[in-house]
């Protein structure tokens, strides 16, 4: 029996994830509290994205448990679709529906899944679009948008479902550098609104700015976690130090 505290939104308890014989995540425990912004960092292949996908039930787990407000997250359970509506997810490659307009992309799930009224959903979608500066694109198709614009639409699509927690899976990894900022600024404003977010990213200065708590993952286990100032200024473990060093370069000393 797992004890659930009132403000615990997502509780991962001794979870293990395997692909066939490969263990991706082993015995990982992590709790996301309401209103908290947790940033997960770590080298490629450390299991960050897999962890996010497990939180949404997109990947089955082989051990332990993941609960959302005390309800078990299991891709095969009958309630999974109700739980998923309350967990928003934004993907690295946007995953917008190519044959639907921007507005249709955003309103599809609220209308079809949540059975909300079309007029009300469209009004909200338009409000959200104007907040990210994309209202004039509402009748365009995804191919007519830049990567940064598509990702902002994907964020609006997730928001329109009124999720209680948002999962961001390397949302700027596929973007050109100048478009990274426009997307991260949306995330920063969501953090200011007090939204609960779990963010997987490689943007270290952004992580430092947005996070309440940084979790450093390596080889499928949490190596270190703490406040961003502590983690980025004084990483305790050698592995974290080594990882953070990969983001800085020494000045070239030219041979005379």
């Amino acid at each position: 029996m797992v004890l659930i505290m009132a403000d615990e939104l997502v509780k991962i308890d001794h979870m293990t994830k395997k692909y066939d014989e490969n263990t991706i995540i082993e015995d990982l425990s992590l709790t996301i509290h309401e209103g908290e912004v947790v940033v997960i960092v770590g080298p490629s292949g450390c299991g960050k994205s897999t962890l996010l996908r497990c939180i949404n039930g997109l990947e089955p787990i082989q051990g332990g448990s993941i609960t959302f407000r005390g309800e078990s997250i299991d891709g095969k359970s009958k309630h999974i679709n109700e739980i998923r509506q309350r967990i928003g997810m934004v993907f690295q490659s946007y995953e917008l529906f190519p044959h639907k307009t921007i507005l249709q992309n955003i309103t599809l799930a609220p209308i079809m899944v949540q059975k909300r009224k079309k007029g009300e959903v469209e009004k909200e979608a338009e409000e959200l679009l104007s907040r990210v500066g994309l209202l004039e694109k509402k009748d365009s198709f995804p191919r007519q948008l830049s990567g940064g614009q598509k990702q902002r639409v994907a964020i609006v699509r997730a928001l329109c479902m009124h999720p209680e927690v948002l999962l961001f899976d390397e949302v700027t990894a596929a973007l050109d550098p100048e478009m990274v900022r426009e997307v991260l600024e949306v995330l920063l404003s969501l953090a200011e609104q007090g939204r609960t977010m779990v963010i997987v990213t490689h943007e270290m200065s952004f992580a430092k700015a947005v996070a309440d708590r940084v979790v450093f993952l390596d080889h499928g286990e949490i190596v270190e976690e703490g406040r961003p100032v502590d983690f980025f200024e004084h990483p305790k473990t050698e592995r974290a130090q080594k990882f953070l060093n990969t983001f800085t370069y020494d000045k070239v000393e030219k041979a005379k």
Partner: peptide, 21 residues
């Protein structure tokens, strides 16, 4: 693309909705 199917799944879409929409 399997990605857009996952996007629909992640929003809680049922099987019928995914097949048709």
């Amino acid at each position: 693309d399997h990605g857009v199917v996952e996007a629909a799944l992640s929003m809680g879409a049922g099987k019928m909705t995914i097949v048709i929409k």
